[in-house]
């Protein structure tokens, strides 16, 4: 428990670093909110007009002063106002986040429930035909860009089944669970495709390592059945790399999946960040990046806790 507290105490420090980085980086990009709004016509503004607009967007002060003001707001739970939406940044993010979270979770569930069994199957039939089939599939899955998978899915669904997935507004899970899952299932499959391929490959190689370990031989010498050897003795020892990979992938997914959101016209975090950057919505960029960084930290912590749960050697210190 004290370990979790220690880890949580490091969060603000990391987030502070991230915030400074983003704050400076976004301002290094040529152009600002005014040019983003008016385009080339921004050059026609009089100095007075320009100053008024700068004051409106809060970019009239030196950068350190802007940062301090933003940081003060942050401590009061205020991430600023989005210039695109005219709403508080936090509200905008929280409108988009449920979709991204649900989509990420669904992709991970698909990836794990397909990838782990396939990887285990391939490892236990090393070098036999079924192993080769799985390996080819995994290679294919990893090397196919997800826009290809997404477009193929939409094409097949609409042309052969006349089914068009609900687009545009997102039905939250708690409003109508079935409709919500149905809306996200195809994007989740699209994202889960490559994810599952990576999981398959890593669980196959981890299982192959573990199957040649001494304790597996011990289990066999006891007369344990092949199923028991694989699922009970080997798999729990092979899960750590799978968890590591899933954590990293999940962290990325929580940052939004721009391409898949675009293809399926979903209002997720990915498109929000994209819009914020192209339109120089400084407050929104800062807010979303900070939010994504925070998610990453939480996921990493969860991954470490999963290690602890999986491996007693980490749970109870070595003697």
């Amino acid at each position: 428990m004290s370990y979790v507290v220690q880890r949580l105490l490091t969060f603000p420090l990391i987030l502070l670093g991230v915030s400074i980085l983003v704050f400076v980086a976004i301002r290094l990009v040529p152009g600002d909110a005014i040019t983003a709004m008016l385009g080339t016509e921004a050059g026609l503004l009089t100095p007075v007009q320009r100053e008024t607009l700068a004051a409106y967007f809060g970019i009239d002060q030196p950068i350190w002063a802007q940062y301090l003001r933003w940081l003060t707001g942050l401590f009061q739970g205020d991430l600023g106002i989005s210039s695109i939406y005219g709403k508080p940044v936090l509200t905008v993010i929280l409108e988009r986040f449920p979709l991204t979270l649900q989509l990420s979770l669904m992709s991970m569930v698909i990836a794990l429930s397909v990838g782990v069994p396939l990887g285990v199957l391939a490892a236990s039939r090393n070098e036999r035909p079924s192993d080769l089939v799985v390996r080819v599939l995994a290679m294919l899955g990893q090397s196919t860009p997800n826009f290809v998978v997404g477009i193929l899915i939409i094409y097949v669904l609409s042309v052969f089944f006349g089914f068009v997935p609900a687009m545009g507004t997102f039905t939250p899970l708690f409003t109508d669970p079935l409709a919500s899952i149905a809306q996200l299932i195809f994007p989740a499959i699209t994202l889960g495709f490559a994810f599952a391929a990576s999981v398959t490959r890593i669980s196959r190689s981890a299982m192959l390592d573990v199957l040649s370990d001494d304790y597996v031989r011990t289990a066999r010498s006891k007369g344990a059945s092949p199923m028991s050897v694989i699922w009970h003795h080997a798999l729990p020892n092979a899960l750590i790399p799978v968890v590591t990979l899933s954590g990293v992938e999940f962290g990325y997914l929580l940052g939004g999946a721009v391409i898949v959101e675009q293809i399926f016209a979903l209002p997720g975090l990915g498109r929000l960040v994209l819009d914020a950057i192209t339109q120089r919505d400084y407050a929104l960029v800062q807010g979303t990046v900070l939010f994504i960084a925070f998610n990453f930290l939480v996921v990493n912590l969860l991954v470490d806790l999963a290690y602890v749960a999986l491996d007693p050697r980490i749970r109870i210190g070595r003697r």
């Binding site: 370990d213 001494d214 304790y215 031989r217 011990t218 289990a219 066999r220 010498s221 006891k222 007369g223 059945s225 003795h233 729990p236 020892n237 999986l310 491996d311 007693p312 050697r313």
Partner: peptide, 25 residues
Amino acid sequence: LLGIRGRDVGMIFQEPMTSLNPVHT
């Protein structure tokens, strides 16, 4: 052979450090 292993022929190995499964008591 599954019936032979353990019941008729038991075995102990060289490396006690690695011959027991680390994730089970």
